[in-house]
Design a protein around this nucleic acid. Sequence first.
DNA 1: TTAAAATGTTTTATATGCCTAACTTTTAAT
DNA 2: ATTAAAAGTTAGGCATATAAAACATTTTAA
Lengths: 138, 138
Amino acid sequence: MIKRPRLSESLEDYLETILALQRENTVARSKDIAQRLNIKRGSVTGILKKLANSDLINYEPYGYVTLTPEGEKRALEIERRHVFLKDFLYRILSVDEETADRTACRMEHAMDNQVFDKFKAFVKKIDACPHSDVQHDT
Amino acid sequence: MIKRPRLSESLEDYLETILALQRENTVARSKDIAQRLNIKRGSVTGILKKLANSDLINYEPYGYVTLTPEGEKRALEIERRHVFLKDFLYRILSVDEETADRTACRMEHAMDNQVFDKFKAFVKKIDACPHSDVQHDT
DNA sequence: TTAAAATGTTTTATATGCCTAACTTTTAAT
DNA sequence: ATTAAAAGTTAGGCATATAAAACATTTTAA
């Protein structure tokens, strides 16, 4: 049984960012990771080593960064939560987009799969209940 | 204009715990704080100094701990979020109580007032919409 | 092809938050 | 009043996450 130790919020953010960059540019670069996460280039290197050590990314000094299968699996989970939460905040709660995104970024680390699944099922039902005026107002 | 610098999740947890203990015992004691938060007695002292420095608690070495007005205001805000989120998770999403509490504990730090207010208004509407089967199912 | 710019890395340092262990103060029991 | 237990504090350490600045490598442009 392989264990999947819980990642810190910080490490989850790195994986999420690497996934996004990989989508946009095929590979992730240290500079871009730093830029997205608003941290310094120098701080990125250590984190990349740690992620590589946990077999979550492929990393060689001065090389490009890509997610391993396990890293991608983790990143996708986090991204799913982010997308879902942002949608809930923005579309259902009518929070402005920037706040929705920022808040989703923080809430996404706080939910396990069980809660996430139930939350998702709940929103699905809300969406299927258009006769109620539950949505679309300030 | 006095500023209210953002508190770390950890410090918010301390305030919340101190509020609860104050309710139960009039004052909070180092030992009980440690017990509730599952940390060692020795770790509490430094935090108390920091909170006292920010004028959030009244603290004297070897003395009891109480919240200042500002500290209480902060603690009440956090507690409000906690209670609300736990209720949402437990009652609306049907998450088991222990998970609801644990998850609320983590989500409560991620929401600003704007989001909280909208979330609350949303749940109010859900509750006022009993003809839909949005609630009460697994 | 070589020098400058861009990118990546290393080192040193800081802050947070926690632990352990030794020590001090307070409290409670006799 | 004395002393043992309980509670609180201090000191030293460790891990994480970050910054700044110097250094190394790679890329780019002339």
